[in-house]
């Protein structure tokens, strides 16, 4: 059930990418889809009544959550930031050249 809510979040991002005509809206859709994917990996790695995967000196913790997806998603978050910055830079450049964010107009302007 909670997986399905995560997938709904992903579909909202996909809808935004496919339907909207504004470049900034498309960037926002990509970001929302990325959030949903990150959240899904962490949800898969969660263990019921789990503890954070950090060892303590004075006690033995048995039920740690899965550290592997957390490590992968830590990488993915930073890469998502880099990708967003690159797309925004390209969008700003397009705005300087064509004076609009509307992709249908840009297509008409020999884009």
């Amino acid at each position: 059930m909670i997986y399905l809510m995560c997938f709904i979040l992903f579909s909202i991002g996909i809808y935004c990418i496919l339907v909207k005509k504004n470049l900034i809206k498309i960037i926002i859709g990509i970001g929302i889809a990325g959030y949903a994917v990150n959240l899904f990996f962490i949800l898969v790695g969660y263990r019921a009544q789990g503890r954070a995967p950090i060892l303590a000196q004075d006690q033995v913790i048995q039920n740690m959550v899965d550290p592997l997806p957390q490590a992968l998603i830590l990488t993915n978050i930073v890469i998502g930031l880099a990708v967003t910055v690159l797309i925004v830079a390209i969008a700003i450049r397009i705005y300087e050249k064509y004076g609009t964010f509307d992709i249908t107009k840009i297509r008409r302007l020999r884009g």
């Binding site: 990150n38 962490i42 503890r51 954070a52 959550v65 957390q70 978050i77 930073v78």
Partner: peptide, 18 residues
């Protein structure tokens, strides 16, 4: 809440930059 404190810190910083 999902017991990933490293990710929470990173996501906070990245989100504000974004």
């Amino acid at each position: 809440i999902l017991k990933a404190p490293d990710l929470a810190i990173t996501q906070l910083a990245v989100e504000i930059l974004c």
